[in-house]
């Protein structure tokens, strides 16, 4: 399944610790936040890989690491077979054209002092593509593709609604014709009726331009709609990776089960019959994560071993192709 020419991006043993410092001139390390702690995954060309988890699980940190907006503590990120972490600034510049990002907040992600035209043209300017006239043509074309009126190039972001702004953000990511787009919760700030518009647009764009998506979200139903494969993160670790259908049909990790069960389905009859698993407790702080399996304090299936040893991400081929989970009792049903 996984061969060199189909894999676009591969993340190996990626770690990012944020050190908490005290003092001013004489910095002392007071502890560390293990935001991303040894994660591994790969994304195939043309597919959508969903990364799901609750706040503080490290999914957004992972996105910023792949974009090299922040430096990892250790690990490797292979893009088209090349470790981009070892690239110099000038070499990296070339790759920046190919990896783009769409942000969550359509209000914070567009500079309020730039017109839509300026915003969408910035990637072209930075990468010195085309002259003024060809840029304008390109911008208008891209705006049309994302469903905006090309005549609006001279307007400012605050004249648009949230959904329209998100389209501007997509146009900015699209204009350099990237291969990989990292979507960091692209619809979670939008109204329900607009979410569906944006999701459909993204799926259409993927087909049209053969894009690869890393789709980050906390909403499993949205992720299920767009993804081919899904990784579930909990406190800096990936606890389960599987093709979308398998993950929903037969979740192996108790956290995934709880997460799936926590989302109410918009269908009253079904919802009234459904047995829900309510995971107890809060998401612990990533500063001092629990020992062993990080999920054990909230896990209904936890036993002695879970607090002592950390389970590895293992393949469970009997539960669908390439279904990985990190649990000693993977697949064991939860009885509330």
């Amino acid at each position: 399944m996984k061969s060199e020419d189909t894999v676009l991006l591969e993340v190996k043993n990626l770690k990012k610790y944020f050190y908490l410092r005290t003092g001013f001139f004489f910095n002392k390390t007071a502890g560390s936040i293990k935001a991303v702690d040894n994660i591994n995954f790969f994304i195939r060309r043309g597919e959508t890989f969903g990364l799901v988890g609750e706040s503080g699980c490290g999914k957004s940190t992972a996105a910023r690491l792949i974009l090299r907006l922040i430096q990892p503590t250790s690990g490797e990120i292979f893009y088209k077979g090349k470790n981009i972490l070892t690239l110099k600034r000038s070499q990296m510049f070339k790759y920046r054209k190919e990896i783009q990002i769409i942000f969550q907040d359509p209000y914070a992600s567009l500079s309020p002092r730039m017109t839509i035209g300026d915003i969408v043209s910035e990637p072209l300017e930075v990468h010195r593509i085309g002259d003024k006239n060809s840029r304008i043509k390109e911008i208008k074309h891209t705006l049309k593709i994302v469903g905006l009126n090309p005549e609006h190039v001279n307007r400012y972001p605050h004249e648009f609604s949230g959904g329209q702004r998100q389209r501007v953000g997509i146009a900015r990511a699209l204009i350099l014709q990237p291969e990989l787009i990292i979507c960091d919760e692209p619809v979670s700030a939008l109204d329900v009726s607009v979410q569906a518009q944006i999701l459909n647009l993204m799926i259409d764009l993927q087909k049209e331009f053969n894009l690869t998506y890393l789709f980050i979200a906390h909403d499993l139903s949205v992720v299920k709609y767009v993804s081919n494969r899904i990784g579930v993160m909990y406190l800096g670790k990936i606890v389960e990776v599987a093709p979308a259908e398998d993950l929903y049909k037969k979740p192996l990790h108790p956290y995934t089960m709880g997460l799936l069960s926590a989302i109410p389905i918009p269908d009253p009859d079904l919802e009234k019959q459904r047995q829900r698993i309510i995971l107890p407790g809060d998401v612990p702080s990533p500063i001092n994560p629990p020992s062993g399996c990080r999920f054990h304090p909230r896990c209904p299936n936890a036993q002695d071993i879970c607090s002592k040893q950390e389970p590895e991400l293992k393949n469970y081929p009997e539960n669908g192709n390439n279904h990985f989970a990190a649990c000693f009792f993977a697949g064991k049903p939860i009885n509330n």
């Binding site: 009726s193 979410q195 518009q197 999701l199 918009p266």
Partner: peptide
């Protein structure tokens, strides 16, 4: 009707394309 068509359902086996409401409020 449009709202119901706009949300993806976790339980659906087959992926059906969402039917969003056009435009914005």
């Amino acid at each position: 009707l449009g709202l119901i068509g706009s949300v993806s359902k976790l339980n659906e086996e087959k992926k059906e394309r969402l039917k969003p409401i056009k435009g914005t409020p």
